[in-house]
Design a protein around this nucleic acid. Structure first.
Lengths: 224, 224
DNA sequence: TCATTTCCGTTGTAAAAACAACAGACTTGT
DNA sequence: ACAAGTCTGTTGTTTTTACAACGGAAATGA
């Protein structure tokens, strides 16, 4: 557990909190560690959880498969980020999604009630953690809205443009890598993979962009 | 301002807080009131805000219009609910959406920094408000994910079924009203209104459901 | 009350997406 | 090094959607 303190120090949740304080909080927040191999599920749809989870290593997908096998990737969570904030309210009910490790991952569980119930004792940095948590969930909110903005476009091409230009903006560069392979990107944008692949190649042939694997370069027409 | 205290008492944000405490907090949180006529914008895309807003009366749409005039309704916010939580973080940037009053509305603005910065002085109920805020934003998160689940369906029919059966579940009844007219529902699900209208009528003809205006009755095949 | 506007369903056509099936390049593990 | 599996692009067909245009019913407002 102690070996992860330096990692935790660089997460959103513990930003601005010293290593000693984190060490002290681990007990207070009843931290537990679990490791998952690529392809394993951290949580399944229908389960209940009341913990906040921080990714120490690896990468997870928050996703959902429907009756027909169509997969929808709701969100991607990387090392340093967290998830489960949406289910901390008492009446939040069962999980709507699966949580899948897409890389070998290490996840640290925290008792979230301990975080939002301000502990009357020590914990000088507790309020900093509350603020961090608040900012993080607020940011996640914006990310979901952004995803909705991509998905709300009518055509696959528009969805791709919306997504790729946002990624370019985030990276401050017209050249960037995306964290998805083709199938995952299609699942994220809720379109058919082959149709999307086809559209990407058309866009390339029209000179809008270049790509190789998950590395993209947008040309002026797209970024404008 | 005082006249809204009984209303505020029944909002998510002030749940469990007495009227006297709310009155005291109004100053602490620098509350301001604004009224909007149906059709007026509360906020526009690109603006900046660092306030939390509670709807005392009326109804708002969080939405976005693109270059081609396609409107996407991200979310609907009714009396007693709040919005703006996603933009309280310092680096949250400009608003991605418009906020439109779809009914005559009264909105109360709060300085959110005052809320999440635990005031060292009195405010016995401050921590209750922090928790309420946390639960509210967490619930909004789940609603966004739910909307994504609707939108991720491949066909208009599947989107309708996903949305309508969720509404039935929320109402604990196969008979319920929806808060949208046809155009708004289409904008919410990101589909064409006429195509959606067409699909709804087909579903009715096939005996899956009945409707009149915004009142729906689902039959077994749909709810199952 | 009457004129105007909004709302909703209908139809036909053109465009786009889903789907299925396949082949080559590349990875992976043994 | 080789076999098995994965990833990506390609093509053709079918289904679905978007789009445009219209008419009638209902709501609105002067």
């Amino acid at each position: 557990m102690k070996k992860y303190i330096p990692i935790l120090k660089r997460t959103q949740l513990f930003s601005g909190v010293g290593e000693e304080e984190i060490g002290a909080m681990l007990n207070c927040l009843q931290a537990r560690i679990c490791t998952y191999k690529k392809g394993e599920y951290v949580l399944r749809q229908g389960e209940h959880t009341d913990t906040l989870m921080v990714i120490a290593e690896g990468k997870l997908h928050i996703q959902r498969d429907d009756y027909w096998g169509n997969r929808s990737i709701i969100n991607m969570v990387s090392a340093g980020e967290m998830f489960g904030e949406a289910y901390v309210a008492p009446e939040s009910g069962a999980l709507m999604n699966d949580v899948l490790a897409v890389e070998d991952s290490v996840v640290i569980f925290f008792d979230v009630k301990r975080i939002i119930t301000v502990c009357p004792t020590a914990c000088r940095f507790h309020s900093a953690v509350v603020q961090n948590l608040f900012f993080a969930i607020s940011e996640k909110n914006r990310r979901l809205v952004q995803k909705i903005t991509f998905m709300s476009k009518r055509t696959t091409r528009e969805k791709l443009i919306a997504y790729l230009s946002e990624e370019a903006k985030r990276n401050n560069s017209s050249e960037f890598s995306i964290p998805f392979n083709r199938q995952q990107l299609a699942d994220y944008l809720s379109v058919d993979r082959s149709a999307m692949s086809n559209e990407l190649c058309k866009m390339r042939d029209e000179g809008m962009l270049e790509f190789e694997k998950n590395r993209f370069v947008l040309h002026d027409a797209v970024t404008a």
